[in-house]
């Protein structure tokens, strides 16, 4: 079952669309999907008033693929809490894309704004462009960010990648911003480019930085070198300021 949503216009006031997910679309026809509600500002509206809806075939949530054909840079929460199926966004996407999802796949053929994959419990997010701040992080005060599943970003990621992450995997093919892996307690983050002050207050988990650590925290112990993916990387343990036992690998640490 394939559902194509084409935005009728570019939105300035964001649309909150946690209802756009295969779990809600499965088994429904065109009119059924058009009558699903989303929020636009402080008004509840139906999907059909904001999007042109095309439906091909029928199927359960696992077999449901949603295509958002256009700019979704003001559409928040797409795929929030989804459990299976697939969503493709042909453009940029707004905050909380794939937040709390536990299965299925989201492909963003553009940039993803902040909090993509927030507190994700399973499934996969693939961002072809850049990701914003708090990729795979936790909501304020929440103890666990990303728990399970994988997030891949082809471009760069913003600050606080994997903040409070407890499991799963994040791969950033470009560089990350400030304090990636902050408070992480499990899982693995791979940054192929550079990063600033990685792994602050890290308890457990693995961070691999194939590029440079541009600035390093003063609370990590150098523990020799190890070969990972056929590159010899420096190994550090920390964050010792909190008695952490996380592992940080890096190719190069910039001298002050």
């Amino acid at each position: 079952m394939l559902v194509k949503l084409t935005p009728k216009k570019a939105f300035r006031i964001p649309v909150e669309a946690e209802n756009i997910k295969p779990d809600n679309f499965a088994g429904k026809g065109k009119s059924g999907i058009e009558s699903i509600t989303v929020c636009h500002g402080n008004k509840e509206v139906i999907l059909g008033s904001l999007f042109d809806v095309e439906v091909k075939g029928v199927g359960n949530e696992k077999e449901t693929k949603i295509l958002i054909d256009g700019d979704a840079s003001r559409i928040k929460r797409i795929g929030e809490r989804m459990t299976s199926g697939e969503i493709t966004i042909n453009g940029n996407v707004d905050m909380h894309c794939g937040a709390l999802m536990s299965g299925g796949k989201i492909i963003v053929n553009g940039d993803a704004d902040a909090w993509a994959g927030r507190e994700m419990r399973g499934g996969e997010i693939m961002v072809e462009g850049n990701a914003g701040h708090y990729l795979g992080a936790g909501y304020w005060g929440v103890e666990k960010g990303l728990r399970c599943g994988i997030i891949r970003v082809k471009g760069n990621a913003g600050d606080y990648v994997g903040e409070h992450m407890a499991g799963g995997e994040i791969v950033v093919q470009g560089s990350a911003g400030l304090l990636p892996g902050l408070n992480m307690s499990g899982g693995k983050i791979m940054i192929e480019g550079d990063a600033i002050l990685p792994c602050g207050e890290m308890k457990k988990g693995i961070m691999i930085i194939k590029g440079k650590i541009l600035e390093m925290l003063p609370s990590f112990r150098f523990d020799g070198t190890e070969v990972i993916d056929s590159i010899e990387l420096k190994k550090f343990t920390g964050d010792l300021a909190i008695g952490g036992s996380g592992t940080l690998y890096a190719n190069f640490v910039s001298e002050e």
């Binding site: 602050g200 600035e215 925290l217 003063p218 609370s219 990590f220 964050d239 010792l240 300021a241 909190i242």
Partner: peptide
């Protein structure tokens, strides 16, 4: 600020050997 605070916490936790000569 963050780095200096981390260094202070590291020293307080008894790990002054790890802290670099200037933070």
């Amino acid at each position: 600020d963050y780095r200096v605070l981390s260094a202070l916490r590291m020293i307080l936790a008894g790990g002054e050997d790890i802290v670099p000569s200037c933070v």
